[in-house]
Amino acid sequence: MESVEKQVYAAKKTRRLSERKKDMLSGYLYVAPFFIVFGVIGLYPAIFSIVLAFQKWNGLGAMEYVGFGNFALVIQDPLFWKSLYNTVIIGLMGTAPQLVVGIILAYLLNMAALKFTNFFRVTIFMPYITSMVAVALIFGVFFSSNESALANYTLGLFGFDPVSWKTSEWGAKIAISLMVFWRWVGYNMIIYLAGLQSIPKDLYEAATIDGANKTQQFLHITMPLLRPFIMLTVFMSTVGALQLFAEPTVFLGSSAFNRDEAMTVVMYLYRDAFQLGSFGTASATAVLLLIIIVGAAGLNTWLTSGAGRKKKGAVKR
């Protein structure tokens, strides 16, 4: 009798294990498409690019191992440092103001007294979903080198000479920075607006009862509770600024890779790979850019979060 019970118990246990294995297998099958696609179009190109950074290859012939020779060529190239300088300057000019303006716009659009808030939200967010072709046409007309163009006409009203926006050193940087600002300020505004709407209204009511004015509420309630959203936008803006490619390429057109006034690091590695056929140096540039992005993003995140921890610690003491 006991042997029969043991056999029944063993059969039930085997059945449970088989059902658990089936559940695990079905779960893996559900998530498998993502990992397959990620491995093919994400992980494999990244690993291949790292391997290619140590090879000399023109895209067709056999590879030749050169060690750190590609990195040496890139670091010794003045155009690489020029492109890195352009990337940092355009990034600071285009992304730093949009974070500040995004917070201000989100704060204004979160006010209950403001009418037509949905209209303003959609209008400000619209550039983010606008086609880059349309953006290029708009800014190409606005920043044309003609004296009758809107930008030069506006400068003329204040007594300034016309600017050749696409060929001058700072003209191209300013125009591209404004394009980046115009396109992405609405995106950051929506993130900040979501953060503002997540703050409990009871905190503001209690602060009003205690006699705090709007400025004090903004500095001591809004900004501390908005810090996680600020950290997110700072991180994403840093990564996006260092990967800038579409805006300068579309704005400058066919001359984008022939001039260095607004060439970014991504444009530099694209030029090496697809115009000069030097995939090794292009991959080495990509690896260097990855190191720069990780360092810059980590530094910005540490600065953004470190200020809050320091202030919190000071209050506890």
Score class of each variant (00 low, 15 high):
N258F: 13
G140C: 06
N58E: 05
F80E: 03
G94Y: 00
P200F: 06
T222R: 00
S3T: 11
K166M: 11
G211V: 08
K56A: 13
Y30T: 10
P97W: 07
T281E: 14
L155D: 09
K12Y: 10
V265I: 15
T117S: 11
V40G: 01
F274T: 05
D260L: 04
G59I: 08
G280K: 02
Y187G: 03
E205R: 10
Q55M: 15
L203M: 15
Y85H: 10
E19Y: 10
V234W: 01
N188R: 05
E147W: 02
L17P: 00
L289Q: 10
L242S: 02
Y153E: 09
K13F: 09
A96Q: 01
R227Y: 09
G240D: 13
R309S: 12
L84A: 15
G313L: 10
N58W: 02
P33L: 09
L288G: 02
T233E: 13
L242T: 02
L114E: 03
Q76K: 15
P78C: 08
V315D: 08
M231H: 00
P224Q: 08
I89K: 04
G140K: 01
G295Q: 01
E2C: 00
G59V: 08
P224H: 07
S26I: 11
G280D: 05
V294K: 00
T87V: 05
I75S: 09
Q243S: 13
E64Y: 05
V287A: 07
D260I: 07
I199N: 05
F54E: 01
G140S: 08
I291P: 02
S177D: 01
E147V: 10
T95R: 14
A207E: 06
V265R: 00
S148I: 11
A136G: 15
L193K: 04
V239R: 02
F120M: 04
Q243D: 04
A62G: 11
K115T: 09
L196D: 06
M179W: 05
L29I: 13
R309L: 10
G306E: 07
V141C: 00
G69K: 03
A194Q: 05
G67T: 07
N213M: 03
G277H: 07
A151L: 04
Y30K: 07
K12M: 12
K311Q: 12
P97A: 08
D210N: 08
M1D: 11
L226F: 01
S18F: 12
L29N: 04
A134N: 09
Y65A: 12
S278H: 14
A32S: 15
Y44I: 11
S3A: 14
S278V: 10
A246T: 15
S305G: 12
K22M: 12
Q243N: 15
T123G: 13
W182F: 13
T215M: 13
I90N: 00
G27D: 06
G42V: 06
E261P: 01
V250Q: 12
N86Q: 04
P127D: 08
Y204P: 05
P97L: 06
A72G: 08
A282M: 07
A246Q: 12
I129Q: 02
K316D: 09
T154W: 14
T222L: 04
T167C: 02
T238A: 05
P200G: 08
L84V: 08
F235V: 14
G171N: 03
W57P: 03
F245T: 03
L203V: 05
D260V: 10
M132S: 12
I36R: 02
G61Y: 03
K12C: 04
L276G: 05
N213W: 05
K316L: 14
K310G: 11
K13I: 07
I90R: 01
R15K: 15
A10D: 14
L109A: 08
